[in-house]
């Protein structure tokens, strides 16, 4: 009877389990294995030619100035992108939740649209908008400013890349904050208003503290997501100019592109470690509540 139940259960799980084993479990273990070898693209047909090299790839990674630079680039993307995305998302959620009754649904739809929009298409638009004689510079020249060639400037390319990331994701933050705001009981505000608390004091002493769990969740979600940033720099600049926008994920992809599968896997494990670290923090912070 027990054996039968187990068989039935696993039969139901089988389609998912097969794909999971083939495309998540085995690849994760394999990537760890690859990262400890000198595997190259040309070795795939002759697996026996591959040598075990221990932690050599990892040592090489941290001796590689490009990889260290890419970690800093990724950190910059997270450090600037997360607060910006959250700030815009929170402001919009607050406005939609407390100030606006008409057109609420329409506004929400508009602000969420970038989230479902295809990134390749959007990046294309972004490229032309920030082109030397693109839309942005046209607007600037209308007010008498000479616009730079944004994506070819090592100092200006990253802000544009971050801006695209923020544009694509603030809708996500907004919707999460909206859900959090709607969970705050209305009578708390009424009681505060009776006690003479103004809007700013209500925001500071009621909204923000009660929204803390949502804020933590959004920040962790975005951090994990932005740590893996790939699409925006790949499509806008391919990591350039001079590597100023290359992220860790893009480094991994470029190493894969030149056939350095061992190095690529090692870099991806450094990222996995970072993501796992943040995820563990997430579980720690969110568990007690739910």
């Amino acid at each position: 009877m027990r054996a039968r139940r187990t068989a039935v259960g696993w039969l139901f799980l089988a389609p998912f389990a097969v794909v999971f084993l083939l495309y998540t479990a085995v690849p994760t273990v394999a990537a760890l294995g690859f990262s400890l070898t000198d595997l190259r693209g040309s070795d795939l047909r002759h697996p026996l030619a591959v040598d075990f090299t221990g932690l050599e790839n990892y040592v090489r990674l941290f001796q590689d100035d490009a990889f260290v630079r890419d970690i800093l680039n990724t950190a910059l993307f997270v450090a600037v992108g997360v607060p910006l995305t959250m700030g815009i998302g929170f402001a919009l959620a607050l406005a939609l939740n407390s100030g606006v009754r008409r057109l609420r649904g329409a506004f929400r739809t508009v602000f969420f649209a970038p989230v479902v929009t295809n990134v390749v298409a959007v990046a294309l638009i972004w490229q032309y908008a920030f082109h030397a004689d693109g839309t942005v510079n046209r607007v600037l020249s209308a007010v008498g400013l000479a616009g730079p060639n944004w994506l070819d400037d090592p100092h200006l390319a990253m802000p544009v890349v971050i801006a695209l990331g923020v544009w694509r994701n603030f809708g996500t933050a907004m919707v999460l904050f909206l859900a959090g705001l709607q969970a705050i009981p209305r009578d708390v505000y009424e009681a505060a208003a009776l006690d003479g608390a103004g809007r700013w004091r209500q925001l500071r002493h009621i909204t923000l503290p009660l929204l803390l769990p949502t804020t933590l969740m959004v920040s962790v979600l975005l951090t994990v997501f932005y740590l893996q940033v790939f699409d925006e720099p790949y499509l806008l600049t391919d990591g350039g100019p001079l590597g100023s926008t290359e992220s860790v994920a893009l480094y991994t992809y470029h190493q894969f592109g030149v056939g350095e599968l061992g190095v690529s896997s090692a870099a991806s494990f450094v990222m996995l470690a970072l993501v796992a670290l943040v995820s563990v923090v997430q579980f720690r912070l969110l568990r007690p509540r739910s």
Partner: peptide
């Protein structure tokens, strides 16, 4: 749900 795509895509490609 947590494993980054970057970590698994090389072995996924080999498979």
């Amino acid at each position: 749900l947590m494993v980054p795509f970057t970590t698994v895509f090389v072995p996924q490609f080999v498979i």
